[in-house]
Nucleic acid binder design. Structure first.
Lengths: 208, 208
DNA sequence: CGTTGTGAATGTATTCACAGCG
DNA sequence: CGCTGTGAATACATTCACAACG
């Protein structure tokens, strides 16, 4: 049962952040937190935080704030993080293999369960406890292994082709590191380093 | 002379994309391109593209479209990409060193000129033609080397401290790979993998 | 008290629709 | 014609401001 999709995009993005702050608060033993505390952590306004949390229904108590564990659970539910997502890494070059060793992926319900590379040299290698398989086995393994998401870290020129394979293998979403817009009809979340750098350059040069 | 900062954030983001499409068009020998062609490449509306390009002043010709080379130059100017930005990579672990080998950085006016790591073992190593220096030399090298931007790829717990060093060394903007909000008064552009994954999970599970 | 939740007001971004130009 | 540039209309997001609540 997909949770209500009525949550606006910018809100979803911020909910991810709130979740982190809640985890910190919980780890520090704070059982309750106010909208303005959350807001301050990220430079938002308290009204914004309340508006965002309002999307999850009644979650706070006036005069007290939000109960951290309850709210975290609520956000996880809304974001569908209250389950495990199995990931395949496709392309185990520099970026792909770096990601496989990125510890934070293990944290929140995301689990790397397979890795693929076109280079036959790499097949058989083991990176962070996961064996790298040849690309040909993608369809087979993805279908059999209940893998929902893929991290695409192949050279730009192959990205579209591999993406199409992923879709027909049954992958439901792609985290795309290649600087290309993928033409597929499943959700794609791009990680665009050049764009981020250009953004940064712009902001720096339009400083006061 | 910083270009007019009057360009709205979402527009700046899209201008980066348009620039890519223009480079492709130019490479293919198309000397002219219409707003709807650009729009189609990214799934935007033609009106949106024209509105965005409107921020750059009069750039197109009715009945014809936009002249690719001229428009590209105009966008580069607006985004301050008509210059070289010197980068320092700070933290040459998995992600940092992967970035140093990322070819696309070389492409558009961004040049990695220095790299630092806290681990003395790594000092002296050479990655992609750049020598890794110990963190202590950061201030010295950044000041001397005319380095404007830093890519921060250190473990989350050190990020804030290193960021402060970067600021006092004279860095003007940070591309931050650590999953932390940096409290500094220069522009920071976050690359947040966990957030992107969570975003993706949400979108997948709220599919029709 | 302090803090939530939310209507109403404001601000920002996108789309519509068309006059005007080559 | 085809296509740009832009006012006017619309949709969306954020902030204000305050009643209600423990």
């Amino acid at each position: 049962m997909p949770p209500p999709t009525g949550i606006p995009r910018p809100t979803v993005q911020r909910l991810s952040l709130y979740l982190r702050e809640l985890d910190i608060a919980e780890a520090e033993g704070r059982h309750t937190i106010s909208s303005s505390t959350i807001a301050r952590a990220f430079g938002f306004t308290d009204a914004q935080v309340r508006r965002d949390l309002g999307c999850l229904g009644q979650t706070g108590r006036p005069g007290v704030g939000y109960q951290t564990d309850f709210l975290a659970k609520r956000i996880r539910g809304a974001l569908s993080l209250d389950r495990t997502w199995n990931l395949a890494i496709v392309g185990t070059g520099k970026i792909g293999s770096a990601l496989m060793r990125y510890p934070r992926f293990a944290g929140g319900g995301f689990k790397i369960v397979a890795a693929f590379d076109a280079d036959p040299e790499l097949a058989g290698t083991i990176i962070a406890d996961v064996e790298v398989l040849p690309l040909e086995r993608l369809t087979e393994v993805v279908s059999a292994g209940d893998i929902q998401l893929a991290v695409l870290a192949v050279p730009a020129e192959y990205a579209q082709g591999v993406a199409e394979n992923l879709v027909s293998a049954g992958i439901r979403g792609i985290l795309n590191f290649a600087p290309t817009r993928l033409k597929v009809n499943i959700p794609v979340e791009p990680i665009d380093l050049s764009r981020a750098l250009e953004q940064l350059a712009f902001r720096v040069s339009s400083e006061t």
